[in-house]
Computed example of a mutant assay.
Amino acid sequence: MNLLSRRSVLAIAAVVDVALHSRSAPVAAKALAARHKLPPRHLETLLQGLVHAKILKGVRGPRGGYELARERRRITVGEIVRTAMSLSTADPDDLGANSLLLERVIDPTVKKAGESFLANLDAITVENMCETAEQAHVLDDEKTSGDFAI
């Protein structure tokens, strides 16, 4: 069971992807979208939010794209998730009337659990994720997958 929204998972994937692929040049949004089988416009709002949060840095120009704004070890998964959550268009407080049970028991309990979950994500850095991807030979598998055109 995944407790994170699709947007949060995509944000983590985008940042780790940029960390893995931007060593020699910035990662184009088009290339990023292609690797994750998404339309480029689908990622653009998310990428701009990550730039605004100073997790990614946008590079303009014909060879532009995205690169990390800070070292991999200084960006946590919790920070990425919080940024993605802040970009959500739904207002979690706009659910209508609250009952006493929701207000005094359910909401505080769920909030406390969520804070604990995010604290655990704060212990994971982009560096950790990149090391795991390298151990899993993700980049090697991308090269041999044959998803390219000449």
Rank of each mutant, 00 (worst) to 15 (best):
E67Y: 02
H42F: 13
A133S: 06
P26S: 04
L50N: 05
R82W: 01
R72C: 10
A113I: 08
V81H: 04
G146T: 13
T89F: 12
L56V: 01
Q48N: 13
A14Q: 01
S86M: 09
Y66M: 06
T89Y: 13
I80H: 02
N2C: 06
L46N: 01
V77E: 03
P92M: 02
P40R: 03
A97W: 03
L121M: 04
M129P: 02
L118G: 05
M85I: 08
E71F: 09
V105R: 12
S145T: 12
F117Y: 15
L47G: 03
D91F: 10
L95I: 14
F148D: 13
A29F: 06
R60N: 05
L102G: 15
A84I: 08
N128I: 04
V51I: 02
D122S: 01
A14I: 08
A113C: 02
G96A: 06
L43G: 00
I55T: 09
I150N: 10
I106G: 14
N128S: 14
I55V: 11
E103Y: 12
F148R: 12
A133E: 04
E131A: 13
L4F: 11
S22T: 00
A136C: 12
L101F: 14
R104N: 07
I12Q: 07
H52V: 07
L32R: 03
E44S: 06
V51K: 00
L56Y: 02
I80P: 01
T125K: 07
L46W: 01
G64E: 07
K112F: 12
P26C: 05
L43N: 01
L118Y: 09
R74F: 14
R41H: 09
R63M: 04
A34W: 09
N128P: 06
I106E: 13
A53S: 08
R60K: 06
P92D: 10
A14F: 07
S8K: 01
S5C: 10
V27Q: 02
P108W: 03
N120V: 09
L20G: 05
R60Y: 03
G61A: 03
L10D: 12
A14P: 01
G58R: 11
G146A: 08
N98T: 07
G114A: 07
I75V: 14
L20S: 10
K143L: 15
L10E: 08
L139G: 04
N120C: 13
A119K: 11
R73H: 13
M85A: 15
T144E: 15
L118P: 06
P92T: 04
T125M: 05
A90D: 11
R74T: 11
R35Q: 07
T89R: 15
R73V: 14
A84W: 11
L50C: 09
R104Q: 06
A34Y: 11
A119S: 05
T89P: 13
S8G: 09
I75P: 08
P26M: 04
L50R: 07
A31I: 04
L118F: 11
E131P: 00
G146W: 03
A90G: 04
S145G: 14
L101E: 14
T125E: 01
A119I: 00
E131M: 07
L121H: 00
N120P: 00
G64R: 10
H137Y: 07
